[in-house]
Design a binder for these strands. Structure first.
Length: 451
RNA sequence: GGAGAGGUGUCCGAGCGGUUUAUGGAGCCGGUCUCGAAAACCGGUGCCCGUUUAUGCGGGUCGAGGGUUCGAAUCCCUCCCUCUCCGCCA
């Protein structure tokens, strides 16, 4: 969510920034709602201040007046009579005619109605704000499509083969380690079963990644719920706008997580973090569930885009001043994994139009897959600045006793499993159909070759 | 799933219709004392919104949402959560 005060103060700046993402926002409507709301709020609050003052008068009079006298006073206050004290300036007649004008008997009734108006405005305003994406950082390149993303570096060379390299779905089926047919039998299209060395390869990769992140990169491992409440998804930005990509259990109102980013963000929801606790760095393995309502074809063949996939996620809560340097470290932590596996990759800075809803700046890590002959997005690392922190009310205290401020949140895949399995199988394949195991994984798999 | 007990500020914990405008303590901040520290003592200190921005002023906030009342942390209703015992289970 964007800061309403920023929108109020610099509407054109916000409008222009979002235009870079191709978002045309209902600015006039937002500003009008905000102004109406504040006007009404001031009116209600001054009425309430009046009411509070009179009620205090009754409380104080309780000990000093007779019962008859007191009930007369209560009756006057009930009708908002203004003859109750020496310092009440307004006239009773004036107020009575105000109430008559509104068709109401008492101030309470007027207040109730006004407050309902404010609640309605609040809801409208909030629902508009929840649909606005984050502002792109000034360093983010212009553009709306894949071709506008900027490659910032590449690592490694695509391997060459004395034979035509095969795609992973052929290698996997031939080795009996990926079973597409039985996956479909169990759960339908876009599900698969990993067996034997296939299942073990994925598990080895998960353990390897978690070990490196926790032992060498300074992350704390977390095991998280795979189902969460709807408010968690509102907190990250997945709801209300992208609900059609999520699985939802209507009976219990549980949502399957589309990424560990969702439970990780909400770990510290509604908390004020004490000085000295930032940055907080977490890593977690979870399964991820997505509807992915796209048509079948090249984009979905094999392991590339299933409804269920595994991912190791990295996540940081940081102070605002350090979030962009932490983003660079986050990317290099993900790169470290790919390098140790000896897989060629490129890092791309996403253009304004290609970034996720919640992100202010994102890098993708694309791993080269020799069989399908394409770059596969295996990681996306984003600085969400205070966008999610505002939705989830995650704050920190810069100094003891200082006012709480919103934290910045960052997330990055470290990395997505199916695409790493694809890259390993395709880049390490051999002519006889077997696959050699990258040295870093050999202790985890207990073998040098998958055959 | 059954029965009972509870949810109060960063934490602990009182209050159960109105001098409470949320008592008290811990913690934290500042000060006194000290060569320095600890202890002791004094003062300050929740969060959100609006307004003003120089200190200010006002409103909201006691798990959430409704209701009763001139007035609700306090009474009533609905829901959520936690704990204890029993049952069931990996």
């Amino acid at each position: 969510m964007l800061d309403i005060q920023l929108i109020r103060k610099s509407p054109q700046v916000v409008e222009q920034a979002l235009l870079r993402r191709g978002e045309d926002i209902p600015l006039e409507r937002i500003l009008h709602l905000d102004e109406t709301r504040r006007k009404l709020l001031q009116e209600v609050e001054s009425m309430r201040a009046n009411q509070n003052q009179l009620n205090r008068l009754v409380g104080r009079a309780k000990g000093t007046r007779t019962a008859d006298d007191l009930s007369a006073l209560v009756e006057q206050v009930r009708l908002m009579g203004y003859e109750v004290g020496p310092n009440t300036a307004s006239t009773r007649e004036g107020f009575a005619s105000f109430l008559v004008h509104l068709g109401r008997e008492t101030l309470s009734q007027v207040l109730d109605q006004r407050q309902a108006d404010i609640r309605r405005l609040d809801k409208k305003l909030e629902s508009l704000l929840l649909y606005l994406p984050n502002l792109p950082h000034p360093t983010v390149p212009e553009g709306t499509g894949d071709e506008d993303n900027v490659t910032v570096r590449t690592w490694g060379e695509p391997p060459t083969f004395p034979f035509t390299p095969r795609p992973h779905y052929e290698i996997g089926e031939a080795l009996g380690i990926i079973d597409f047919e039985r996956g479909v039998k169990l759960s339908g299209t876009r599900f698969y079963v990993l067996k034997g060395a296939g299942a073990r390869l994925q598990r080895a990769l998960i353990t390897f990644m978690l070990d490196v992140h926790t032992r060498e990169h300074g992350y704390t491992e977390a095991y998280l719920p795979f189902m969460v409440k709807g408010e968690c998804l509102v907190g990250t930005g997945s709801l209300p706008r992208f609900g059609d990509n999520l699985y939802h259990d209507a009976e219990e109102d549980y949502w399957w997580v589309p990424t560990a980013e969702v439970p990780l963000t909400n770990l510290h929801r509604d908390e004020i973090l004490e000085p000295g606790t930032l940055p907080l760095c977490y890593t977690a393995y979870t399964a991820c569930f997505r509807r992915e309502k796209m048509a079948a074809g090249k984009e979905t063949r094999g392991l590339k885009r299933g409804h269920q996939f595994d991912k190791v996620e990295m996540y940081k809560f940081t102070e605002p001043d350090h979030s962009y340097e932490e983003l660079e470290k986050l990317v290099s932590d993900a790169e470290d994994i790919v390098q140790r596996l000896g897989l060629p990759y490129r890092v791309r800075m996403l253009c304004a139009g290609e970034m996720g809803f919640q992100s202010a700046k994102s890098y993708d890590i694309d791993v080269w897959a020799s069989g399908v002959g394409e770059w596969l997005e295996a990681s996306s690392c984003s600085n969400c600045t205070d966008f999610q922190a505002r939705r989830t009310r995650i704050r920190y205290r810069p100094e003891p006793g200082a006012r709480p401020q919103l934290v910045h949140t960052l997330n990055g895949s470290g990395l997505a499993l199916p695409r790493m399995v694809i890259a390993v199988l395709e880049n390490y394949q051999r002519e006889d159909g077997t696959v050699s195991v990258p040295p870093a994984l050999q202790p985890y798999l207990g073998t040098e070759v998958i055959s």
